[in-house]
Simulated assay, not measured.
Amino acid sequence: MVKEGEGPRPPHRSQARGEPLDGATALSGVALVTGASSGIGRHLVAGLAARGMAVAGLARSGERLAAAMAEVAAASGAQTLAVPADVTDRAAVDEAVARVREELGPVDLLVNNAGVIDAAEEPLWEADPDQWWSVVESHVRGAFLLARAVVPWMVLRNRGRVVDLASGMGVRARPEYSAYSVAKTGLMRMTEALAGALEGLDVRVFDVAPGVVDTPMTRAMPMWRGFSDWTPPERVVELVAAIAAGELDQWSGRFLRAGADDLAVLRATTPADAARQLRLRPYGDDDPLA
């Protein structure tokens, strides 16, 4: 454990719990991925386990989650743990994180992936208020509760990485997906606020937009009907793995896009000012907010 007053330590990187994929960065430690039973979360669980991490998966559907985590363990030889919980339930989140810590160890990488989408493509005034708000809660309250339960332990150890799954809809609102747009914008603000609070520590926070990955959620969205230019899920895994390895620390508090951003460029670039952060654009040189 890092004692108070000690300086930052480099991220823990070593081969453990099985062989990583050929050419992939070897990782160790414990990852906690929410929304792990299907879609992007399921790909992340498999990719992180294949690189040597012990992985805890959290999702509401206990039976499907248990099956997914068992499949990953069998394929990778990694230690996995299925933890059924609703990310919007404070007591359930606290209990889930405590269980991960007790059975696997302290969390080195938290990936806030869980979240739902608007029930239908419709303007805000036609949306069901309860369903609309449940979308915002799933992304914002869920990530807040996970960070609240996990980050203090990262601070205590002076080591950890947090990834919030962002979206292009967080920077360019879609009127037919107003709840999802609001949720992802809020999540980006939370990422930046958390990164600022952690400045000076070896605990970093990132927004990662996965692009349009072929998942049951995107398949269910009418706007992607007939779409074929999917972002390979491997690109999302590679980006998150690079973050876990401490290779992109200079991008903490900023927005990264899997499938569009080149990892080599990201590694070699130190962003300045408010690059890749949400800001108002001035209307001209005389704008008082410029």
Score class of each variant (00 low, 15 high):
267 R>D: 00
182 V>M: 11
192 E>S: 09
86 D>M: 00
267 R>I: 09
289 L>N: 14
35 G>Q: 07
23 G>E: 03
128 D>M: 01
246 G>Q: 00
81 L>M: 00
54 A>E: 04
161 R>F: 10
284 G>H: 09
229 D>S: 10
161 R>L: 07
89 D>N: 14
142 G>A: 01
3 K>D: 05
68 A>K: 02
48 L>K: 10
137 E>W: 07
77 G>W: 01
230 W>V: 04
49 A>I: 14
160 G>T: 02
88 T>H: 11
87 V>C: 05
104 L>S: 05
140 V>T: 06
79 Q>C: 08
158 N>H: 00
103 E>D: 13
4 E>Y: 01
158 N>R: 05
79 Q>L: 01
194 L>T: 10
82 A>H: 12
182 V>Q: 00
139 H>Y: 12
56 A>N: 00
12 H>K: 07
115 G>Q: 04
162 V>R: 01
52 G>L: 08
37 S>K: 12
155 V>M: 14
38 S>L: 08
19 E>I: 13
92 A>W: 11
176 E>C: 13
127 A>T: 11
154 M>S: 07
266 L>Q: 09
208 V>C: 01
263 L>F: 04
211 G>Q: 09
271 P>A: 07
163 V>P: 03
82 A>W: 11
74 A>Q: 14
157 R>L: 03
186 G>W: 00
225 R>K: 10
139 H>A: 12
29 G>R: 08
281 R>S: 11
38 S>A: 08
221 M>A: 14
199 E>H: 06
81 L>F: 13
188 M>F: 01
184 K>P: 03
109 L>S: 06
243 I>K: 02
46 A>Y: 10
129 P>V: 07
4 E>M: 05
101 R>G: 15
188 M>E: 05
130 D>M: 12
74 A>H: 01
118 D>H: 01
288 P>F: 14
275 A>W: 15
193 A>R: 03
283 Y>K: 06
